[in-house]
Nucleic acid binder design. Structure first.
Lengths: 198, 198
DNA sequence: TTACTTTTCGACTCATCATTCGAAAATATA
DNA sequence: TATATTTTCGAATGATGAGTCGAAAAGTAA
Protein backbone atom coordinates (compact mmCIF):
# COMPACT_ATOMS: atom_id res chain seq x y z
CA UNK A 1 0.00 0.00 0.00
CA UNK A 2 1.47 3.32 -0.87
CA UNK A 3 -0.77 6.42 -0.83
CA UNK A 4 -4.44 6.59 -0.04
CA UNK A 5 -6.77 8.85 -2.05
CA UNK A 6 -7.45 10.89 1.05
CA UNK A 7 -3.75 11.45 1.56
CA UNK A 8 -3.45 12.64 -2.01
CA UNK A 9 -6.33 14.99 -1.54
CA UNK A 10 -4.89 16.41 1.65
CA UNK A 11 -1.61 16.91 -0.06
CA UNK A 12 -3.29 18.85 -2.82
CA UNK A 13 -5.13 20.99 -0.29
CA UNK A 14 -1.87 21.84 1.41
CA UNK A 15 -0.39 22.79 -1.91
CA UNK A 16 -3.35 25.03 -2.60
CA UNK A 17 -2.98 26.64 0.78
CA UNK A 18 0.61 27.39 -0.02
CA UNK A 19 -0.29 28.83 -3.39
CA UNK A 20 -2.96 31.04 -1.85
CA UNK A 21 -0.48 32.44 0.63
CA UNK A 22 2.14 32.85 -2.04
CA UNK A 23 -0.29 34.68 -4.29
CA UNK A 24 -0.92 37.32 -1.69
CA UNK A 25 2.78 37.75 -1.07
CA UNK A 26 3.64 37.89 -4.77
CA UNK A 27 0.91 40.41 -5.35
CA UNK A 28 2.26 42.82 -2.80
CA UNK A 29 5.99 42.20 -3.26
CA UNK A 30 6.47 40.83 -6.74
CA UNK A 31 8.47 37.75 -7.62
CA UNK A 32 11.82 39.10 -6.51
CA UNK A 33 10.56 40.98 -3.51
CA UNK A 34 8.76 37.98 -2.07
CA UNK A 35 10.80 35.81 0.28
CA UNK A 36 10.23 32.16 0.96
CA UNK A 37 10.12 32.94 4.65
CA UNK A 38 7.23 35.30 4.14
CA UNK A 39 5.41 32.88 1.90
CA UNK A 40 5.90 30.21 4.53
CA UNK A 41 4.59 32.38 7.34
CA UNK A 42 1.67 33.64 5.33
CA UNK A 43 0.54 30.18 4.39
CA UNK A 44 1.18 28.77 7.83
CA UNK A 45 4.06 26.37 7.18
CA UNK A 46 7.73 26.29 7.92
CA UNK A 47 10.03 27.35 5.11
CA UNK A 48 11.45 23.92 4.55
CA UNK A 49 7.95 22.55 4.22
CA UNK A 50 7.35 24.74 1.23
CA UNK A 51 10.32 23.04 -0.38
CA UNK A 52 8.80 19.72 0.45
CA UNK A 53 5.91 20.62 -1.84
CA UNK A 54 7.59 22.81 -4.41
CA UNK A 55 10.99 22.74 -5.98
CA UNK A 56 11.75 26.44 -5.84
CA UNK A 57 10.27 29.89 -5.51
CA UNK A 58 9.85 30.09 -9.23
CA UNK A 59 8.08 26.79 -9.17
CA UNK A 60 5.54 28.19 -6.74
CA UNK A 61 5.09 31.23 -8.92
CA UNK A 62 4.65 29.11 -11.98
CA UNK A 63 2.16 26.84 -10.29
CA UNK A 64 -0.10 29.76 -9.47
CA UNK A 65 -0.19 30.90 -13.06
CA UNK A 66 -0.52 27.49 -14.66
CA UNK A 67 -3.34 26.60 -12.32
CA UNK A 68 -5.15 29.81 -13.02
CA UNK A 69 -4.81 29.60 -16.77
CA UNK A 70 -5.85 26.00 -16.81
CA UNK A 71 -9.09 27.00 -15.13
CA UNK A 72 -9.78 29.82 -17.52
CA UNK A 73 -9.10 27.60 -20.42
CA UNK A 74 -11.37 24.82 -19.29
CA UNK A 75 -14.28 27.16 -18.80
CA UNK A 76 -13.57 28.76 -22.15
CA UNK A 77 -13.33 25.74 -24.37
CA UNK A 78 -17.07 25.07 -24.75
CA UNK A 79 -17.72 28.72 -25.57
CA UNK A 80 -15.08 28.73 -28.25
CA UNK A 81 -16.19 25.58 -29.96
CA UNK A 82 -19.69 27.02 -30.18
CA UNK A 83 -20.46 27.74 -33.80
CA UNK A 84 -21.65 31.33 -33.99
CA UNK A 85 -20.61 34.50 -35.76
CA UNK A 86 -17.24 35.96 -34.76
CA UNK A 87 -18.76 38.90 -32.99
CA UNK A 88 -21.12 36.75 -30.98
CA UNK A 89 -18.42 34.32 -29.97
CA UNK A 90 -16.17 37.22 -29.13
CA UNK A 91 -18.70 38.65 -26.74
CA UNK A 92 -19.28 35.24 -25.16
CA UNK A 93 -15.59 34.75 -24.60
CA UNK A 94 -15.26 38.10 -22.89
CA UNK A 95 -18.26 37.41 -20.72
CA UNK A 96 -16.89 34.04 -19.72
CA UNK A 97 -13.55 35.53 -18.76
CA UNK A 98 -15.29 38.20 -16.76
CA UNK A 99 -17.18 35.51 -14.89
CA UNK A 100 -13.98 33.76 -14.04
CA UNK A 101 -12.44 36.98 -12.88
CA UNK A 102 -15.39 37.67 -10.64
CA UNK A 103 -14.98 34.37 -8.87
CA UNK A 104 -11.39 34.91 -7.90
CA UNK A 105 -10.59 38.57 -8.43
CA UNK A 106 -7.19 38.50 -6.78
CA UNK A 107 -6.01 35.67 -8.92
CA UNK A 108 -7.14 37.01 -12.24
CA UNK A 109 -5.64 40.41 -11.87
CA UNK A 110 -2.41 38.59 -11.20
CA UNK A 111 -2.84 36.32 -14.17
CA UNK A 112 -3.25 39.10 -16.66
CA UNK A 113 -1.19 41.85 -15.16
CA UNK A 114 1.79 40.69 -13.21
CA UNK A 115 3.83 38.34 -15.30
CA UNK A 116 4.76 40.90 -17.89
CA UNK A 117 7.76 42.01 -15.87
CA UNK A 118 8.95 38.49 -15.15
CA UNK A 119 12.09 36.88 -16.53
CA UNK A 120 12.00 33.09 -16.19
CA UNK A 121 13.43 30.38 -18.39
CA UNK A 122 10.28 28.30 -18.31
CA UNK A 123 7.00 30.06 -18.61
CA UNK A 124 4.59 27.19 -19.10
CA UNK A 125 1.58 29.43 -18.56
CA UNK A 126 2.53 31.48 -21.59
CA UNK A 127 1.26 28.73 -23.77
CA UNK A 128 -2.29 29.10 -22.44
CA UNK A 129 -2.05 32.84 -22.61
CA UNK A 130 -0.89 32.84 -26.20
CA UNK A 131 -3.53 30.35 -27.18
CA UNK A 132 -6.20 32.58 -25.74
CA UNK A 133 -4.81 35.67 -27.41
CA UNK A 134 -4.60 33.85 -30.71
CA UNK A 135 -8.24 32.85 -30.44
CA UNK A 136 -9.35 36.37 -29.68
CA UNK A 137 -7.21 37.81 -32.41
CA UNK A 138 -8.68 35.29 -34.80
CA UNK A 139 -12.21 36.25 -33.87
CA UNK A 140 -11.38 39.89 -34.45
CA UNK A 141 -9.73 39.15 -37.79
CA UNK A 142 -12.74 37.20 -38.97
CA UNK A 143 -15.18 39.70 -37.55
CA UNK A 144 -13.50 42.52 -39.37
CA UNK A 145 -13.42 40.56 -42.60
CA UNK A 146 -17.10 39.84 -42.25
CA UNK A 147 -17.73 43.49 -41.52
CA UNK A 148 -19.00 42.91 -38.00
CA UNK A 149 -16.45 45.32 -36.65
CA UNK A 150 -15.17 48.66 -37.93
CA UNK A 151 -12.48 48.36 -40.58
CA UNK A 152 -9.44 48.88 -38.41
CA UNK A 153 -6.11 47.17 -38.18
CA UNK A 154 -7.07 44.06 -36.22
CA UNK A 155 -4.01 44.15 -34.03
CA UNK A 156 -4.85 47.63 -32.94
CA UNK A 157 -8.40 46.64 -32.30
CA UNK A 158 -7.03 43.89 -30.11
CA UNK A 159 -5.01 46.30 -28.02
CA UNK A 160 -7.86 48.72 -27.64
CA UNK A 161 -10.29 46.04 -26.62
CA UNK A 162 -7.71 44.60 -24.29
CA UNK A 163 -7.49 47.85 -22.39
CA UNK A 164 -11.22 48.25 -22.43
CA UNK A 165 -11.87 44.78 -21.19
CA UNK A 166 -9.32 44.90 -18.40
CA UNK A 167 -10.77 48.15 -17.29
CA UNK A 168 -14.24 46.76 -17.28
CA UNK A 169 -13.48 43.56 -15.43
CA UNK A 170 -11.07 44.80 -12.85
CA UNK A 171 -12.92 47.98 -12.22
CA UNK A 172 -16.16 46.27 -11.25
CA UNK A 173 -16.19 46.55 -7.48
CA UNK A 174 -17.09 43.49 -5.50
CA UNK A 175 -20.41 45.10 -4.61
CA UNK A 176 -21.18 46.00 -8.18
CA UNK A 177 -19.94 43.18 -10.36
CA UNK A 178 -19.89 43.42 -14.11
CA UNK A 179 -22.80 41.71 -15.74
CA UNK A 180 -23.06 40.05 -19.11
CA UNK A 181 -25.25 42.90 -20.22
CA UNK A 182 -22.64 45.44 -19.21
CA UNK A 183 -20.09 43.90 -21.46
CA UNK A 184 -22.43 43.44 -24.33
CA UNK A 185 -23.91 46.90 -24.23
CA UNK A 186 -20.58 48.60 -23.74
CA UNK A 187 -19.12 46.82 -26.68
CA UNK A 188 -22.11 47.63 -28.81
CA UNK A 189 -22.06 51.23 -27.76
CA UNK A 190 -18.39 51.78 -28.34
CA UNK A 191 -17.51 49.46 -31.18
CA UNK A 192 -20.34 49.66 -33.58
CA UNK A 193 -21.39 46.88 -35.84
CA UNK A 194 -21.24 48.60 -39.20
CA UNK A 195 -24.09 46.52 -40.49
CA UNK A 196 -26.48 48.05 -38.01
CA UNK A 197 -26.96 51.73 -38.53
CA UNK A 198 -28.57 53.20 -35.49
CA UNK B 1 36.35 79.38 -7.85
CA UNK B 2 34.30 76.27 -7.53
CA UNK B 3 32.76 74.67 -10.62
CA UNK B 4 32.89 75.91 -14.19
CA UNK B 5 29.85 75.70 -16.45
CA UNK B 6 31.68 73.31 -18.72
CA UNK B 7 32.42 71.04 -15.79
CA UNK B 8 28.79 71.06 -14.86
CA UNK B 9 27.80 70.21 -18.37
CA UNK B 10 30.26 67.36 -18.57
CA UNK B 11 29.01 66.06 -15.30
CA UNK B 12 25.49 66.06 -16.62
CA UNK B 13 26.57 64.27 -19.77
CA UNK B 14 28.20 61.58 -17.68
CA UNK B 15 25.03 61.22 -15.69
CA UNK B 16 23.05 60.85 -18.86
CA UNK B 17 25.45 58.25 -20.14
CA UNK B 18 24.92 56.31 -16.97
CA UNK B 19 21.17 56.61 -17.22
CA UNK B 20 21.23 55.42 -20.82
CA UNK B 21 23.20 52.35 -19.88
CA UNK B 22 21.02 51.74 -16.86
CA UNK B 23 17.89 52.01 -18.96
CA UNK B 24 18.98 49.24 -21.22
CA UNK B 25 19.88 47.04 -18.27
CA UNK B 26 16.64 47.76 -16.43
CA UNK B 27 14.65 47.06 -19.54
CA UNK B 28 16.09 43.62 -19.96
CA UNK B 29 16.46 42.66 -16.30
CA UNK B 30 14.01 44.75 -14.32
CA UNK B 31 14.83 46.73 -11.22
CA UNK B 32 15.73 43.77 -9.06
CA UNK B 33 17.41 41.76 -11.75
CA UNK B 34 19.74 44.56 -12.74
CA UNK B 35 23.07 44.70 -10.94
CA UNK B 36 25.15 47.77 -10.39
CA UNK B 37 28.09 45.93 -11.93
CA UNK B 38 26.18 45.43 -15.14
CA UNK B 39 24.98 49.00 -15.18
CA UNK B 40 28.54 50.14 -14.64
CA UNK B 41 29.93 47.98 -17.43
CA UNK B 42 27.16 48.87 -19.84
CA UNK B 43 27.65 52.57 -19.34
CA UNK B 44 31.43 52.35 -19.35
CA UNK B 45 32.30 53.32 -15.79
CA UNK B 46 33.56 51.54 -12.73
CA UNK B 47 30.94 50.52 -10.25
CA UNK B 48 32.04 52.95 -7.58
CA UNK B 49 31.82 55.75 -10.10
CA UNK B 50 28.12 55.17 -10.46
CA UNK B 51 27.85 55.84 -6.76
CA UNK B 52 29.77 59.03 -7.22
CA UNK B 53 26.93 60.28 -9.39
CA UNK B 54 23.93 58.56 -7.85
CA UNK B 55 23.04 57.69 -4.33
CA UNK B 56 21.73 54.19 -4.97
CA UNK B 57 20.36 51.83 -7.55
CA UNK B 58 16.86 53.06 -6.87
CA UNK B 59 18.07 56.57 -7.33
CA UNK B 60 19.29 55.69 -10.80
CA UNK B 61 15.99 54.08 -11.58
CA UNK B 62 14.09 57.06 -10.32
CA UNK B 63 16.21 59.48 -12.27
CA UNK B 64 15.39 57.75 -15.53
CA UNK B 65 11.69 58.05 -14.92
CA UNK B 66 11.68 61.56 -13.56
CA UNK B 67 13.77 62.76 -16.48
CA UNK B 68 11.51 61.11 -18.98
CA UNK B 69 8.32 62.42 -17.49
CA UNK B 70 9.71 65.90 -17.15
CA UNK B 71 10.36 65.90 -20.87
CA UNK B 72 6.91 64.66 -21.76
CA UNK B 73 5.38 67.20 -19.52
CA UNK B 74 7.30 70.13 -20.92
CA UNK B 75 6.35 69.28 -24.46
CA UNK B 76 2.76 68.80 -23.38
CA UNK B 77 2.15 71.96 -21.47
CA UNK B 78 1.61 74.27 -24.45
CA UNK B 79 -0.79 71.81 -26.05
CA UNK B 80 -2.84 71.55 -22.90
CA UNK B 81 -3.14 75.24 -22.29
CA UNK B 82 -4.38 75.65 -25.84
CA UNK B 83 -8.02 76.61 -25.70
CA UNK B 84 -9.91 74.21 -27.94
CA UNK B 85 -12.70 71.73 -27.60
CA UNK B 86 -12.01 68.70 -25.39
CA UNK B 87 -11.92 66.32 -28.29
CA UNK B 88 -9.49 68.44 -30.24
CA UNK B 89 -7.20 68.95 -27.31
CA UNK B 90 -7.43 65.27 -26.55
CA UNK B 91 -6.23 64.36 -30.01
CA UNK B 92 -3.43 66.91 -29.82
CA UNK B 93 -2.24 65.50 -26.54
CA UNK B 94 -2.13 61.99 -27.91
CA UNK B 95 -0.28 63.15 -30.97
CA UNK B 96 2.24 65.00 -28.89
CA UNK B 97 2.88 61.98 -26.71
CA UNK B 98 3.29 59.83 -29.78
CA UNK B 99 5.88 62.28 -31.10
CA UNK B 100 7.80 62.04 -27.87
CA UNK B 101 7.64 58.29 -27.98
CA UNK B 102 8.95 58.25 -31.51
CA UNK B 103 12.00 60.22 -30.53
CA UNK B 104 13.10 57.87 -27.80
CA UNK B 105 11.16 54.65 -28.20
CA UNK B 106 13.11 52.66 -25.65
CA UNK B 107 12.55 55.23 -22.99
CA UNK B 108 8.86 55.73 -23.45
CA UNK B 109 7.95 52.12 -23.41
CA UNK B 110 9.76 51.98 -20.11
CA UNK B 111 8.01 55.05 -18.80
CA UNK B 112 4.55 53.74 -19.38
CA UNK B 113 5.00 50.06 -18.95
CA UNK B 114 7.66 49.06 -16.49
CA UNK B 115 7.09 50.84 -13.24
CA UNK B 116 3.82 49.13 -12.50
CA UNK B 117 5.57 46.23 -10.82
CA UNK B 118 7.89 48.43 -8.78
CA UNK B 119 7.77 48.89 -5.02
CA UNK B 120 9.69 51.96 -3.91
CA UNK B 121 9.07 54.32 -1.03
CA UNK B 122 9.57 57.40 -3.14
CA UNK B 123 8.10 57.48 -6.59
CA UNK B 124 8.53 61.07 -7.58
CA UNK B 125 7.68 60.36 -11.19
CA UNK B 126 4.21 59.24 -10.15
CA UNK B 127 3.28 62.84 -9.67
CA UNK B 128 3.85 63.62 -13.34
CA UNK B 129 2.12 60.48 -14.40
CA UNK B 130 -0.94 61.20 -12.30
CA UNK B 131 -1.07 64.77 -13.47
CA UNK B 132 -1.11 63.59 -17.07
CA UNK B 133 -3.74 60.97 -16.41
CA UNK B 134 -5.86 63.51 -14.62
CA UNK B 135 -5.67 65.85 -17.59
CA UNK B 136 -6.65 63.16 -20.02
CA UNK B 137 -9.42 61.95 -17.81
CA UNK B 138 -10.66 65.52 -17.54
CA UNK B 139 -10.69 65.93 -21.29
CA UNK B 140 -12.69 62.75 -21.64
CA UNK B 141 -15.14 63.78 -18.94
CA UNK B 142 -15.72 67.12 -20.58
CA UNK B 143 -15.85 65.64 -24.04
CA UNK B 144 -18.47 63.17 -22.98
CA UNK B 145 -20.49 65.87 -21.27
CA UNK B 146 -20.34 67.95 -24.40
CA UNK B 147 -21.37 64.95 -26.44
CA UNK B 148 -18.15 64.81 -28.43
CA UNK B 149 -17.64 61.22 -27.39
CA UNK B 150 -20.06 58.34 -27.03
CA UNK B 151 -21.94 58.32 -23.75
CA UNK B 152 -19.84 55.80 -21.88
CA UNK B 153 -18.47 55.66 -18.37
CA UNK B 154 -15.50 58.01 -18.74
CA UNK B 155 -13.18 55.84 -16.68
CA UNK B 156 -13.84 52.93 -18.97
CA UNK B 157 -13.27 55.09 -21.97
CA UNK B 158 -9.97 56.04 -20.46
CA UNK B 159 -8.89 52.45 -20.10
CA UNK B 160 -9.97 51.54 -23.57
CA UNK B 161 -8.21 54.48 -25.12
CA UNK B 162 -5.18 53.76 -23.02
CA UNK B 163 -4.86 50.31 -24.50
CA UNK B 164 -5.55 51.61 -27.95
CA UNK B 165 -3.02 54.36 -27.70
CA UNK B 166 -0.26 52.20 -26.30
CA UNK B 167 -0.87 49.75 -29.04
CA UNK B 168 -0.70 52.42 -31.66
CA UNK B 169 2.42 54.14 -30.42
CA UNK B 170 4.51 51.17 -29.48
CA UNK B 171 3.45 49.14 -32.42
CA UNK B 172 4.65 51.64 -34.98
CA UNK B 173 7.92 50.16 -36.19
CA UNK B 174 10.86 52.47 -36.54
CA UNK B 175 10.54 52.22 -40.31
CA UNK B 176 6.86 53.01 -40.26
CA UNK B 177 6.27 55.55 -37.55
CA UNK B 178 2.83 56.59 -36.47
CA UNK B 179 1.73 59.87 -37.97
CA UNK B 180 -0.59 62.49 -36.65
CA UNK B 181 -3.09 61.47 -39.25
CA UNK B 182 -2.95 57.87 -38.11
CA UNK B 183 -3.97 58.80 -34.64
CA UNK B 184 -6.61 61.20 -35.71
CA UNK B 185 -8.22 58.93 -38.25
CA UNK B 186 -8.09 55.88 -36.03
CA UNK B 187 -9.75 57.73 -33.24
CA UNK B 188 -12.40 59.09 -35.54
CA UNK B 189 -13.02 55.71 -37.05
CA UNK B 190 -13.29 53.85 -33.80
CA UNK B 191 -14.71 56.37 -31.40
CA UNK B 192 -17.32 58.28 -33.26
CA UNK B 193 -18.24 61.81 -32.59
CA UNK B 194 -21.98 61.48 -32.04
CA UNK B 195 -22.56 64.91 -33.48
CA UNK B 196 -21.30 63.84 -36.87
CA UNK B 197 -23.42 61.17 -38.43
CA UNK B 198 -21.51 59.66 -41.27
C1' DT C 1 3.09 -1.78 20.43
C1' DT C 2 6.52 -1.69 16.85
C1' DA C 3 8.33 -0.73 12.31
C1' DC C 4 7.76 2.24 8.47
C1' DT C 5 6.38 6.38 5.76
C1' DT C 6 5.10 10.99 5.36
C1' DT C 7 5.33 15.58 6.89
C1' DT C 8 7.28 19.40 9.37
C1' DC C 9 10.76 22.58 10.61
C1' DG C 10 14.61 25.73 12.39
C1' DA C 11 19.24 26.21 11.83
C1' DC C 12 22.96 26.18 8.58
C1' DT C 13 25.35 27.01 4.21
C1' DC C 14 26.57 29.57 0.43
C1' DA C 15 26.19 32.82 -3.32
C1' DT C 16 24.86 37.11 -4.71
C1' DC C 17 24.80 41.79 -4.69
C1' DA C 18 24.33 46.75 -2.91
C1' DT C 19 27.11 49.85 -0.83
C1' DT C 20 31.50 51.77 1.22
C1' DC C 21 36.55 52.55 1.49
C1' DG C 22 40.77 54.31 0.52
C1' DA C 23 43.88 55.18 -2.59
C1' DA C 24 45.25 56.66 -7.22
C1' DA C 25 44.65 59.07 -11.52
C1' DA C 26 43.11 63.14 -13.99
C1' DT C 27 42.02 67.80 -14.11
C1' DA C 28 41.80 72.46 -12.59
C1' DT C 29 43.85 76.52 -10.25
C1' DA C 30 47.63 79.50 -8.51
C1' DT D 1 55.31 73.84 -11.34
C1' DA D 2 53.01 72.83 -6.95
C1' DT D 3 48.64 72.43 -4.70
C1' DA D 4 43.83 71.55 -4.42
C1' DT D 5 39.77 69.55 -6.32
C1' DT D 6 37.29 66.32 -8.97
C1' DT D 7 36.77 61.90 -10.83
C1' DT D 8 37.74 57.07 -11.13
C1' DC D 9 37.91 52.42 -9.62
C1' DG D 10 38.77 47.54 -7.75
C1' DA D 11 38.76 45.40 -3.60
C1' DA D 12 36.60 44.82 0.97
C1' DT D 13 32.26 44.69 3.80
C1' DG D 14 27.91 43.14 5.26
C1' DA D 15 23.17 41.95 4.59
C1' DT D 16 19.94 39.28 2.61
C1' DG D 17 17.68 35.34 1.24
C1' DA D 18 17.34 30.89 -1.63
C1' DG D 19 17.85 26.41 -0.95
C1' DT D 20 19.71 22.15 2.03
C1' DC D 21 20.25 19.16 6.07
C1' DG D 22 19.27 16.14 9.57
C1' DA D 23 16.48 15.28 13.00
C1' DA D 24 12.02 15.02 15.09
C1' DA D 25 6.98 14.83 15.09
C1' DA D 26 2.77 12.85 13.22
C1' DG D 27 0.49 9.52 10.88
C1' DT D 28 -0.24 4.69 8.98
C1' DA D 29 -0.20 -0.26 9.06
C1' DA D 30 0.57 -4.84 11.24
Amino acid sequence: MSISPRQLEERKMRQERILAGALSVFKSKGLDGATMDEIANTSGFGKATIYYYFKSKEDVFSAILVDGWKNIWESLEPVISEDSSPRTTFVSVLIKIAENAQNRPGLFEFLFDVPKAIKLDNQPWKEYQNRLYAIIQGLLDDGIKQNEFPQINPKLMFKALGGLFMGLVFMGDKKDPVTDKDIESLLNELIRDPKLNN
